[in-house]
């Protein structure tokens, strides 16, 4: 029995301690060749422009939503400041963009996400100004888009609200880092195996790193969504998020 136990313990240890290269945060300053840095930045522009006008419209129609908009931005602020350990033995942080995407639409969240990234790039040397475009595309464009689409899908399938919020936030979080690894793989194709090999390398580990964080983000988003829904029913109704149920 003890032999078996030793073997299992050994195997478990071996599998878990195996050195894993992890990449699961924003792309560092200067680490994306200029062409790509610029391209991703340009790709973001339409979303930011649409987001600004979407925010203007929302707030113009219902000024009371300002406070909830601020809270959605603040949520992304808090979550992306929390570096949480993950099973791969490195730390990463959630994005917090799912909430805003569900409440105000994906492009509005692009604007808020950009603000968060800018703060981190300038004051924290986390991410970077040259990689701002790429990071904004993954966290502020792709993540919110996926979150928004997921929420809509669950709603369409008549799934419960909490499930929609949970899946939206979790998948949006995961998608952010999937896009990050695609961006890195495009910029740094492996000599052997090219884009695919690099992508596999970046994704393999980092899907793992981010999965528990994505679940956490999903749960936290459900909590904050419920809190807002409990006290701000009128606002959420204004956003067409609450059906007549209570």
């Amino acid at each position: 029995m003890s032999k078996k136990l030793q073997l299992t313990a050994g195997l478990v240890l071996m599998l878990t301690v195996m050195p894993a290269q992890a990449f699961a945060m924003h792309i560092m300053e200067g680490f994306l060749p200029p062409v790509w840095a610029a391209s991703w930045g340009v790709l973001c522009i339409p979303f930011i422009v649409m987001g600004l006008s979407s925010i203007n419209k929302t707030v113009g129609e219902n000024p009371r939503l300002k406070i909830i908009l601020a809270m959605a931005g603040a949520f992304a602020f808090v979550l992306s400041a929390l570096k949480i350990p993950s099973v791969t033995g490195s730390c990463s942080h959630p994005t917090g963009v799912g909430l805003g995407a569900i409440l105000f639409g994906p492009t509005a969240m692009s604007v808020l996400g950009l603000i968060v990234l800018l703060f981190q790039a300038v004051l924290l040397a986390h991410g970077g100004l040259t990689t701002l475009g790429a990071n904004a595309f993954s966290m502020a464009v792709a993540g919110p888009l996926v979150a928004f689409a997921t929420y809509r899908l669950v709603k369409k399938a008549k799934g419960p609200q909490w499930l929609g919020v949970f899946l939206a936030a979790a998948l949006g979080d995961l998608m952010t880092y999937v896009v990050t690894s695609v961006q890195l793989a495009i910029a740094f194709p492996a000599e052997v195996g090219g884009f695919g090999a690099s992508l596999g390398k970046f994704m393999g580990i980092f899907a793992l790193t981010q999965i528990p964080l994505a679940i956490s983000e999903g749960i936290l988003t459900v909590l904050i969504f419920n809190a807002i829904a409990a006290y701000g029913k009128d606002e959420l109704k204004g956003l067409n998020l609450l059906q007549k149920e209570g």
């Binding site: 350990p85 033995g89 390398k201």
Partner: peptide, 20 residues
């Protein structure tokens, strides 16, 4: 992951890129 250092993953990314 008892023996891991739990450093920020962005630092590790530099190594990954250097490898490629």
């Amino acid at each position: 992951a008892r023996d891991a250092e739990f450093e920020g993953a962005d630092g590790k990314a530099e190594e990954a890129i250097a490898e490629i």
